[in-house]
């Protein structure tokens, strides 16, 4: 899921994220928020050190997270392989301190914890190298 990217290939990553962003917008217009979130999470760059890439991807993921209306139907459609990376982005969302973002992240966090267990939270908190 998270592709291995060369550390110095930042421009390519940014271009890909921009491309992803356009795709997400069109998916959201078609009322496919879950597909949009999957697209946003795919190819997330946790392995790169570059904060610019991380922020660019966070903006895209944030857009998709905020578009989720029905959390229950999200988890009936989201495959378990996305759980760990989604949890990382939820914690990034919570760290912003922005009220609507935190509300939304907490709502998803509750359901995600039910689905994926405490291990998912531990994997997110314990990994200080591959941050998003």
């Amino acid at each position: 899921m998270a592709e291995i990217v060369e550390a110095d290939n930042y421009e390519a990553i940014i271009t890909r994220i921009e491309h992803k962003s356009r795709k997400i917008e069109s998916l959201l217009k078609q009322y496919k928020p879950v597909e949009a979130l999957k697209t946003a999470l795919e190819g997330s760059p946790p392995k790169t050190k570059d904060e610019r890439c991380k922020s660019a991807n966070w903006i895209v993921v944030h857009r998709a997270i905020m578009a989720i209306k029905d959390v229950d139907s999200l988890f009936s459609a989201l495959d378990p392989e996305y759980y760990d990376i989604l949890m990382k982005y939820l914690y990034r969302g919570l760290s912003t301190g922005d009220r609507p973002t935190c509300d939304q992240c907490l709502r998803i966090h509750e359901k995600l914890t039910e689905k994926a267990g405490l291990g998912c939270i531990l994997r997110c908190l314990a990994d200080t190298v591959n941050t998003v």
Partner: peptide, 13 residues
């Protein structure tokens, strides 16, 4: 040529 598998646990470590 070590072959590694990782298994994620649902619960505490």
């Amino acid at each position: 040529s070590a072959a590694a598998q990782s298994v994620a646990i649902r619960d505490l470590p």
